[in-house]
Design a protein around this nucleic acid. Structure first.
Lengths: 180, 180
DNA sequence: CCAACCATGTAAGCTGTTACATGATTGA
DNA sequence: TCAATCATGTAACAGCTTACATGGTTGG
């Protein structure tokens, strides 16, 4: 029952594999050709990560398919355990300190089947972002904040605005998903 | 002439020490009590980092002061080499892929003496953020982007908005600094 | 036939995290 | 005197980055 031996790169891989079974190389390509690249750079990290997930029994490689497209080890599939672990991760709470990871999760929710999770996510994302922004504004108004050099205060203001933009995004995303 | 053996935590430490000489403990406190905490968590990283900076000759501990406030090793000061290295870092270009580090740098510029650097920074920060946002919008409009699941597209939109908020912050910061 | 791309990895090194360990001093 | 805070570290471990190494296949 050890809860989290899986890193965010691991979850990214699980999510992509859940979307459709892929080879290690195809996974690398996704990171190279999409903004998801910010979650990893190439080979040296993803192959070891895949090996780790396989060792944990969350994915397995199958020489899947009648045609010989599978040159290497074949396509990775989620095992039932992998599916369960990924599902649990998807349903977890939004951590205010790590909105980037939260967004990764969001990108793997499916408009069709996960509607309830999506609504819950957006609500708690908005709340978390608003709260973080509030914390920073409070800091700025407090003793330490007022004593900081101007540049530092401006930098903190940047953080506030980032969080506020995040909260606004959540509101916007809700309207988009409603009028779909 | 090995260019960059200093990490962003290292630069954060150099910057804080430049603001005023401090003990290792005082530096830890800054990370614990300000939003700068996002650049590190405690002891296990900052003491080794300080040791590294000392080994590189960028800082040195002095039993500075007539009164015995210095219980431990004393206060860390920048050496001339440290001052030069930090100054060079401050004057470097804004890397679009790492706006967080850029913001750390910004927070250490001084409204009094670094006016030229500040103006240059804000201009190039705005440009970088705008460009990153544009890249993401272009991606969304392209083949791969249009083929992605809705959730993923919304997540990318989040990224756009973050960058756009960054660009807007830069514009705002310029007006603040002008009317000072 | 040669370049590009498919496909998979290994190895060294650095950084950071967590958790533990220690001891002096100050204030209630 | 007892807890909190000042003050400094170490050790084990995990993860990522960079760079290198290896081969098969396909298209011009």
């Amino acid at each position: 029952m050890t809860p989290k031996p899986v890193t965010s790169l691991g979850y990214a891989l699980l999510g992509l594999i859940r979307q459709q079974p892929r080879t290690g190389y195809a996974l690398r390509k996704v990171f190279e050709t999409t903004p998801m690249g910010s979650y990893s750079s190439s080979p040296g990290s993803i192959y070891p990560a895949l090996a780790g997930l396989e060792r944990l029994g969350l994915i397995e490689a199958r020489d899947d398919g009648d045609d010989r497209k599978a040159r290497g080890k074949g396509l990775f599939h989620l095992t039932p355990a992998g599916s369960a672990a990924f599902g649990a991760w998807l349903a977890g709470p939004v951590d205010g300190k790590d909105l980037t990871t939260a967004m990764l999760r969001f990108s793997f929710l499916r408009a069709g089947s996960d509607r309830a999770l999506i609504d819950a996510f957006l609500d708690s994302f908005e709340a978390a972002a608003t709260q973080q922004a509030g914390g920073l504004r409070q800091f700025l108004a407090g003793e330490i904040g007022r004593a900081m050099p101007l540049q530092s205060r401006l930098a903190v203001e940047y953080g506030c605005r980032q969080f506020e933009a995040g909260a606004q995004w959540a509101v916007w995303a809700k309207t988009v998903l409603r009028g779909d």
